[in-house]
């Protein structure tokens, strides 16, 4: 018997994070009847997908991906989504809140709050109920926002999909309580302990494909409410005095185009993005209109079933 006598080198920081995430993926696959992975097409989702592929290699991930489409995503995001599904061969479900579409719910007339609630939160609940998923992976990180910093990796939701922040299950070691009653579910966050910088470093290291909107390019934008909003299609009505300008911009985070601010940047490679990250003076949420609506807005949305 020849036993590996030499001690292993300790894992690097990214190896550690990767191993933890893979462990979480496998735990869900082993203990839940019907898991699903929420796929929002952004960089975190790209990392999530990459990790899921690794966790079950050579098998494909044993669960489908679900994209909740608000119908206001950047066109490049949808194209990227369909390309990835074709290349990697995963099972992609797309859900749109048809009621919302019939009522023409949109961020311009109804405001970001109502739009997000109906087209994202309610739509998500509809999709989860329709398929009867008992566990749903999301790409949220604890460094994103204060109420996220408080959330468990396995986060319990009651039958109404609501989060009760004051009554979370204790979560000791890597021992996860995966038991739920019928109708209840768990939201699972494999990237909980990653930071934005970790995400970019990992994308760089593993060469993970991401939506081109993250790279600086000349794009048509207008300045609105102190943000640079990209004019992605002709549903975007200009307000008096607004003018479309071509500027070199990129996005730190992606969502519905009318609600997502671009930043002026020259970073057109992954290296340049990481370098920019290292010197950033503001958080990525700066570019998201929805979090500025009110203090504690993220917690409130989460309690209602938002991811």
């Amino acid at each position: 018997m020849q036993h590996s006598a030499l001690a292993q080198k300790p894992l690097t920081h990214l190896d550690r994070l990767e191993a933890e995430s893979i462990h979480i993926f496998r735990e869900v696959a082993a203990t839940f009847a019907k898991p699903v992975m929420l796929y929002s097409i952004g960089k975190d989702s790209s990392v999530l997908l990459h990790l899921a592929m690794k966790a079950f290699y050579p098998a494909p991930p044993p669960f489908p991906l679900l994209h909740v489409d608000t119908t206001w995503k950047f066109r490049e995001m949808i194209a990227f989504r369909d390309r990835m599904a074709a290349e990697l061969g995963f099972d992609l479900l797309v859900h749109i809140n048809e009621e919302g579409v019939r009522e023409d719910i949109n961020p311009f007339d109804h405001g970001s709050n109502t739009h997000t609630h109906i087209m994202k939160t309610v739509a998500l609940r509809q999709a989860l109920d329709k398929h009867g998923f008992d566990a749903a992976f999301g790409g949220a990180r604890r460094d994103e926002e204060k109420s996220r910093a408080k959330e468990r990796i396995f986060s319990f939701r009651n039958a109404q999909h609501a989060w009760d922040p004051k009554n979370q299950r204790p979560e000791m070691w890597k021992i996860y309580n995966t038991r739920i009653a019928p109708g209840e579910s768990i939201r699972v966050f494999p990237l909980s302990n990653w930071t934005e910088l970790d995400i970019w470093q990992y994308i760089l290291k593993e060469n993970i494909p991401i939506v081109p909107l993250y790279f600086a390019r000349k794009r048509p934008v207008v300045e609105r409410d102190g943000m640079l909003i990209m004019v992605d299609d002709d549903r975007m009505k200009l307000r008096p005095g607004e003018e479309i300008e071509e500027r070199i911009v990129r996005f730190r985070t992606l969502g519905c185009y009318p609600l997502t601010g671009a930043i002026e940047s020259e970073a057109d490679t992954l290296e340049a993005i990481v370098r920019e990250m290292l010197t950033a003076q503001t958080s990525e949420r700066q570019g998201r209109l929805i979090d500025r609506d009110e203090a504690g807005s993220m917690e409130k949305k989460k309690r209602e079933g938002y991811f």
């Binding site: 604890r142 460094d143 926002e145 204060k146 109420s147 996220r148 910093a149 408080k150 922040p165 004051k166 979370q168 909980s192 302990n193 930071t195 504690g296 917690e299 409130k300």
Partner: peptide, 21 residues
């Protein structure tokens, strides 16, 4: 900066563990 839940901010106490990096 760390007491992130509404109830925590209102009551000025820490209820749940926050992870920071």
């Amino acid at each position: 900066l760390v007491d992130g839940l509404e109830a925590e901010r209102e009551q000025g106490i820490t209820i749940d563990v926050a992870y920071r990096f």
